[in-house]
């Protein structure tokens, strides 16, 4: 199941152009963590142009493609245009909570760095 947040103030998208396949972390930072059985993955763009690209490319479906362990779960995307950031809330990723979770990373501390390591098609204009 996927959900996008109700009101989304998105920047104008970048003009289409040539891309290169590189880690998402080339142009975005991330921090992730837990609240009970829910994980959150915050992702911010490093520049205004990178934000214009990220806000349109990193959809819930794209996140679930990059992090297949979230694919069967409810993921909600919140847009923080003021911070050039997206916040993904992943319900149920951590089972019953940190103390009882059986995941390798039971508090989702590294989920953000995992996401940054995934390769995506990044516009060359962001790579100068």
């Amino acid at each position: 199941m996927t959900r996008d947040a109700v009101s989304e103030a998105l920047p104008a998208p970048l003009e289409p152009g040539a891309t290169r396949r590189l880690p998402l972390g080339t142009v975005a930072g991330a921090r992730s963590g837990d609240k009970g059985g829910t994980a959150n993955i915050g992702v911010w763009a490093r520049t205004h142009d990178a934000w214009s690209w990220l806000a349109h490319s990193l959809t819930v479906a794209e996140l679930q493609r990059l992090l297949p362990e979230t694919a069967g779960l409810t993921v909600t995307r919140h847009v923080l245009d003021n911070l050039h950031a997206l916040n993904f809330v992943v319900d149920g990723l951590l089972g019953e909570g940190v103390a009882s979770s059986t995941r390798f990373d039971p508090q989702a501390k590294a989920a953000g760095e995992w996401l940054r390591s995934r390769h995506v098609d990044i516009p060359e204009t962001l790579l100068s």
């Binding site: 959150n40 915050g42 919140h78 003021n82």
Partner: peptide
Amino acid sequence: TAQLLYEIGEPRYAGPDVTTRFDTICL
């Protein structure tokens, strides 16, 4: 920014004293 994104949910950050609009923060 990294720390603001840590362990948050929706942009209306609810607490017992106030609900904080994370979508209004200017850094």
